[in-house]
């Protein structure tokens, strides 16, 4: 009933279908494109460096997860 003709598993969320490669999907996929050229690559140490910080935003997440 979806536009894709391919057979999908009928269970409610058909999650398993996602495991089979592209089963649910479009005939081709855009987005998350693979860069053709190497752009703006970070150095080996830069790409590993710490990014997480306990900002107000992050604190709000923790706060609203508590009782």
């Amino acid at each position: 009933m979806s536009m894709t003709k391919e057979e999908t598993r009928p269970d409610r969320r058909s999650f398993l279908k996602a495991l089979s490669v592209g089963a649910a999907g479009a005939s081709a996929v855009a987005g998350l494109a693979t860069p053709v050229e190497a752009v703006a690559a970070e150095s080996a140490s830069d790409k590993r460096k710490k990014r997480y910080r306990e900002t107000d935003h992050v604190k709000a997440f923790y706060r609203t997860n508590r009782y």
Partner: peptide
Amino acid sequence: DRRSFLARSGLAAGGLAGLSALGFTSM
């Protein structure tokens, strides 16, 4: 605006055939 590009191209989620061929540069 990759999103808006998709919107303007009139292509829908279920049928994105050929888009990946555009590659990064042309996008």
